[in-house]
Nucleic acid binder design. Structure first.
Lengths: 171, 171
DNA sequence: GGGCGCATGTAATGAGTTACATGATTGA
DNA sequence: TCAATCATGTAACTCATTACATGCGCCC
């Protein structure tokens, strides 16, 4: 229900059409959601059918009509509910990368280090990107800060792993 | 491919049947994977068809025959490949909980704090659980340590958020 | 005039989960 | 004896992605 919450939250601040919503999410919220176009349209249709949002078609020139969505009272109700549910619950993050870590002992330490250093490059880039985003008010503020906190911890951790693996090679 | 890597990695250390694999994963690896029974069986079938593993049925009493799997050379090859790929790449974690955070400003600070404190309880429990696991050698060592590092950072971060929100209520 | 951005939509596919069904064994 | 555990399997379903198709408008 996170995706629904997100769409409702964005529509609450401003009526928008599907393309616009997807565009915003893709531009500014990639660090916490990945919502494809088809999914966005699908979800909007679904929420319209449930009566959470209403649709208002506007024509601009000869382009395909924009389907501009707005929250209904029922939508607002559900926004409130979903927001509270989301804030109150902690859903543990799963790290697919940990499975590799589980078997890192099967590789010679020197090779493991080389591979993890490649991982480190991408991770450091992600962190740099997150830190490069100028301070935000509003929607993104906490999300970006959280991302920075998380990535910093990940980087420290990875360095520790690499450090301990290289101790093994010196002996 | 993480799930395949995991199954291959476990089979590499010891031949096992589906139930056994699922059981091990559910008992000891919940913090990094959630693999349902049906999925485990499906994946094993798939990997058998691809020639990564072979099956050896053994009957114990009158029970359903155990289908004990073992790695083939092709399976070993793919284990090596998948492990290297996994270690070398960083796949960013997505936090569904961040979407709530994005809209936390829509709630009165006092209520937001109450909700986040509920989140904190679960989070603190997860951390306590992870820390309670006795020091491990082998497969789980790094995974558990990583989990502790991550959860500690999350908890600190959450406390910071709650702290800053309560500043708002004092003014 | 050609490619990109706007704006929608849908059919096929895939991965994974749910919810079943079966039936023997073990232990309280 | 009754529930839980062992051990498998599969059909239906959900959710999301991929990969298309359409066609206008804008800018170089």
């Amino acid at each position: 229900m996170e995706r629904e919450l997100l769409l409702l939250g964005l529509l609450r601040r401003q009526d928008m059409h599907g393309y616009q919503l997807h565009d915003f999410i893709e531009s500014y919220m990639t660090m916490c959601v990945d919502l494809k176009k088809a999914t966005a349209y699908f979800l909007l249709d679904k929420m319209e059918q449930m009566g959470w949002i209403t649709q208002n078609s506007t024509q601009v020139g000869n382009r395909p009509t924009r389907r501009v969505y707005a929250l209904t009272p029922l939508g607002e109700e559900n926004f409130q509910r979903l927001l509270r549910e989301n804030l109150a619950s902690y859903l543990p993050a799963r790290f697919g990368s940990d499975i590799g870590l589980a078997f890192v002992g099967e590789l010679p330490a020197t090779e493991a280090i080389t591979l993890l250093q490649q991982r480190r490059v991408t991770l450091a880039e992600s962190l740099a990107n997150a830190q490069a985003i100028p301070p935000h008010e509003g929607v993104l503020q906490w999300v970006i800060e959280h991302q920075v906190v998380h990535l910093t911890a990940e980087l420290q951790w990875l360095d520790q792993v690499i450090g301990r693996l290289s101790e093994n090679t010196h002996s």
